[in-house]
Amino acid sequence: MSHIKRNGTNAILSTSVEYHGFVFLAGITADDLSKDVAGQTAEIIAKIDAALEEHGTDNTRLLSAQIWLKDIRDRDAMNALWTKWLPAGAQPARACVEANMASARHLVEIMITACK
């Protein structure tokens, strides 16, 4: 039986799960909720980079991304950072939708699947 590696596990979720060379990140949000959508996106991208590095991979190995925005009109501001962060030719399959967030102060949440 293959080993499943779980990190940051609590009663509700694991912040990341690795299995057979695939890395699944939980939805990541910013810690500083006083920031605007660009500030929160920048913080989330940095957290994604750190989580991927912890698993021995990076943003050149993204497979899919799910992005939730509190207000879909913030998509362009979020995409400005997202597109600068993605390496050319490494764009994942992606969904980006407007959603009711866990807190009114959360403006964006991003969930990633990558491979090693």
Rank of each mutant, 00 (worst) to 15 (best):
residue 43 E to W: 11
residue 45 I to F: 12
residue 1 M to R: 10
residue 16 S to T: 03
residue 41 T to F: 07
residue 107 L to K: 06
residue 68 W to R: 14
residue 9 T to C: 01
residue 13 L to P: 00
residue 91 Q to A: 12
residue 10 N to K: 04
residue 100 N to L: 15
residue 88 A to K: 13
residue 49 D to L: 07
residue 26 A to R: 04
residue 68 W to N: 04
residue 82 W to E: 02
residue 37 V to K: 02
residue 34 S to L: 12
residue 45 I to A: 02
residue 51 A to D: 01
residue 33 L to V: 05
residue 111 M to Y: 00
residue 82 W to M: 07
residue 22 F to K: 10
residue 3 H to M: 14
residue 8 G to N: 07
residue 89 G to N: 11
residue 90 A to I: 04
residue 1 M to A: 12
residue 106 H to C: 10
residue 67 I to E: 00
residue 106 H to L: 13
residue 115 C to L: 09
residue 62 L to V: 07
residue 113 T to L: 13
residue 46 A to N: 11
residue 56 G to M: 12
residue 43 E to F: 07
residue 67 I to G: 00
residue 70 K to C: 08
residue 10 N to I: 08
residue 62 L to Q: 05
residue 64 S to D: 11
residue 38 A to C: 09
residue 77 A to K: 14
residue 114 A to Y: 01
residue 79 N to K: 13
residue 104 A to W: 09
residue 100 N to V: 15
residue 29 T to A: 06
residue 65 A to T: 09
residue 102 A to T: 09
residue 113 T to N: 10
residue 116 K to R: 15
residue 30 A to F: 03
residue 15 T to P: 00
residue 36 D to S: 10
residue 96 C to N: 07
residue 13 L to H: 08
residue 103 S to N: 13
residue 104 A to T: 15
residue 81 L to C: 09
residue 69 L to G: 02
residue 4 I to G: 01
residue 35 K to L: 14
residue 91 Q to T: 11
residue 17 V to P: 00
residue 108 V to I: 14
residue 59 N to D: 12
residue 99 A to I: 10
residue 18 E to V: 10
residue 82 W to C: 02
residue 82 W to H: 05
residue 108 V to D: 00
residue 45 I to M: 12
residue 9 T to V: 09
residue 50 A to E: 14
residue 116 K to Q: 13
residue 110 I to P: 00
residue 71 D to F: 11
residue 24 F to C: 04
residue 75 R to D: 01
residue 28 I to E: 02
residue 106 H to A: 11
residue 57 T to Q: 07
residue 49 D to F: 08
residue 92 P to D: 06
residue 108 V to A: 12
residue 116 K to A: 10
residue 53 E to T: 13
residue 11 A to W: 10
residue 103 S to I: 06
residue 16 S to L: 04
residue 90 A to R: 15
residue 52 L to D: 01
residue 100 N to R: 11
residue 58 D to P: 05
residue 103 S to D: 14
residue 8 G to V: 09
residue 2 S to A: 14
residue 54 E to D: 12
